[in-house]
Design a protein around this nucleic acid. Structure first.
Lengths: 117, 117
DNA sequence: ACCTATTTGTCCGTATGTATG
DNA sequence: CCATACATACGGACAAATAGG
């Protein structure tokens, strides 16, 4: 799996990892049941601390994309499989919003409201 | 605020803290805008590590109950205010479920399914 | 049934960064 | 400018669950 982090980026390292995994899921490189490298392995290959990778994994777990189990590792969930499908609809919506002069914050607010109701 | 943790309990310390705050919210002792003690303060008074308290606070933030801001502290959100109201409806539902022979796992599954759809 | 290695979970400690007041 | 307080990252240690021999 292609995963790189930029220590100079303003984005937190753990978030860069989570973003990378999410992107890979959307790209189709990771499906339900796919297994991520162990946190220790990934930490070593990225030259990061174990905890930083664990936090990234736990973030993805909180999003419902990862199933973490001691001794077993990190497996992508069924929800991860459909993330890609949902993601395909995003560009069209964003394009329309932009064309209508709706900014990212406003669109996010709309989405947030829709979730709330 | 009354908050105690039991190091001998199987429940993680950070979760005990989060549970305690949630209980205090439901009890009515904490409302929207209420300010929790700083993580450092609480950690010292409970004789725990700063990170343990921070993790508890971040858990509550993820639940939408807490608003964490650097330099400002931890403030209860509007959502915290309504948690108490929702919580009042729980005992009745649980009582009915128990009377009907429905176990906790089954009821949780029903709730989970309802959220999913 | 037992043991061992693996892997995540939690907790502690320390340091530094960054936004707030 | 300074103190406060959360955010991130690193490090180490031990526990608990899992898998495999």
């Amino acid at each position: 799996m292609l995963l790189v982090v930029d220590p100079g980026s303003p984005a937190p390292l753990f978030q860069q990892i989570a973003d990378g995994v999410r992107a890979e899921v959307i790209r189709g490189g990771l499906r339900e049941g796919s297994r991520l490298p162990s946190a220790k392995e990934l930490a070593e290959s990225l030259q990061l601390n174990l905890h930083t990778v664990l936090k990234a994994y736990q973030t993805l777990r909180d999003e419902g994309l990862l199933d973490l189990r001691r001794g077993r590792g990190a497996l992508l969930t069924a929800q991860a499989s459909v993330l890609g499908e949902v993601a395909q609809e995003v560009p069209l919506l964003v394009a329309r919003a932009k064309a209508a002069g709706i900014g990212p914050a406003a669109l996010s607010a709309l989405i947030k409201e829709e979730y709330a109701r």
